[in-house]
Design a binder for these strands. Structure first.
Lengths: 234, 234
DNA sequence: GAGAAAGAAAATATCGATATTTTTGTTGAC
DNA sequence: GTCAACAAAAATATCGATATTTTCTTTCTC
């Protein structure tokens, strides 16, 4: 139980079944368990999650505004398809927003921010030193990576910027998961994280921004390459 | 009937009652007919729109992802509150996104784009020359203003950038409506629109960006001023 | 055989009723 | 008078059933 909580991205208590349905569907779409383009039939989801139809419909409605499912009136839903073009677009948008948020955050961060950032960095680094394990570690890596990036921009005071950054981070994650094994293996992300961390603590915004741009750009390139190859293979 | 269609922002046919509920609620929240912070009780909405509970719940779920209603499990919904801080934040975000989209659009726009832009500009200008009428004209002005701004960025090829720009434009509109009378009366928006239009056709991206930044910045300032005064008066 | 029309099957969208939870209001103890 | 416990009322969330729409299959015509 404790183990589950560590890997979960806790978002407050779930008071309703609809919220549960929303979280489950969201995770399964982002992780790829529900394939892009898949038709989401209510009956299928009902039996998959053991929930009623009403909460599932509500969750699908919310996910459609998140642009994770396409909702077509009277014709049901499907998981939003993926494409190379979309991967680039999302990567570029994430770069634009995360860089802006980082710049602001470095300008405004206080001691508390530094401490939380250091904690997040060291937990991530510890894991990255022993990265040659199986799929379980990679799921945990995503979580810690997520927390580190979030800690970097945490001092940004624009709620909308953070909200949109999060949206693009999650969309990007959906693509990252497809090529994650390759990505983790072939480049030294840990080094980039360290550079980000140090530039942030030095309050060197321009340096941090440059590193971040490279960092996100490389991830996007890796994703696009893997994805293009996959599209070709079909 | 034709008149209605002109002023409406047509978004494809409404195949379901839920879609209708979504549009109606959305319009009423953005226009201010449903006040910020208002508790949205299902029964109240049921009688207001003459629709069943299920479609309304679905619409509320979608609106919560659009950040127009706050959905709190087991405790119902309310119209997302407004604040001076939020007004600034939204204005700044809109500036960031719209400027980026404009830069790309000017770089990629072709003849078709120029034509559509010119059409949108002239329709807006014609209306702005006779702006001293009542509330009906102001509603139409919002529509034409909307179309002009959309036409400016239409050649941008990033779907995500356009999507987020639209989101912020709509959020901004909710604030604009509060201070609209003042805004339209006190500064010469028409002149700014002309400058935008001409810079865009000249493919002078830097000039257009500068004008756009001023344009959005002024709107935001006006909104913040009116809103701050209103908050104080309470 | 190709294509249109009709009918059957499946899936979606919606309603009405019910179970749960929160909120409100009242009473009684201190 | 204040607070806590309890009861009543209101509101939300969910279920099961139904109506509507789409999709698939079959049949019939040319």
């Amino acid at each position: 139980m404790a183990e589950i909580l560590v890997n979960m991205r806790y978002d407050g208590p779930e008071r309703t079944i609809a919220e549960r349905a929303y979280r489950l569907l969201r995770e399964d779409i982002i992780s790829g368990a529900l394939a892009p383009g898949l038709k989401l039939k209510i009956e299928m989801l009902r039996s998959r999650y053991g929930l009623g139809a009403a909460p599932i419909r509500e969750a699908l409605a919310r996910l459609s505004s998140d642009h994770l499912v396409k909702l077509e009136g009277q014709r049901g839903c499907e998981v939003v398809p993926m494409s190379v073009k979309d991967a680039r677009d999302i990567g570029d948008m994430r770069k634009l927003l995360e860089v802006e948020a980082l710049r602001i955050s470095i300008g405004k961060g206080n001691d508390e921010w530094e401490n939380a950032l250091a904690a997040a960095f060291h937990r991530l680094e510890r894991l990255e030193r022993t990265i040659d394990q199986g799929i379980d570690d990679l799921a945990e890596w995503e979580t810690l990576n997520h927390r580190f990036h979030k800690a970097l921009v945490a001092a940004c005071d624009s709620e909308w910027l953070l909200r949109m950054r999060q949206l693009m981070f999650d969309q990007h994650e959906r693509y990252r998961r497809l090529s994650r094994v390759k990505t983790v293996a072939t480049r030294d992300i840990s080094l980039e994280h360290r550079a980000l961390f140090e530039a942030a603590l030095d309050r060197n915004a321009e340096k941090a921004v440059t590193v971040m741009e490279t960092h996100i750009g490389r991830t996007t390139d890796a994703v696009v390459n893997t994805f293009a190859r996959r599209e070709l293979a079909e």
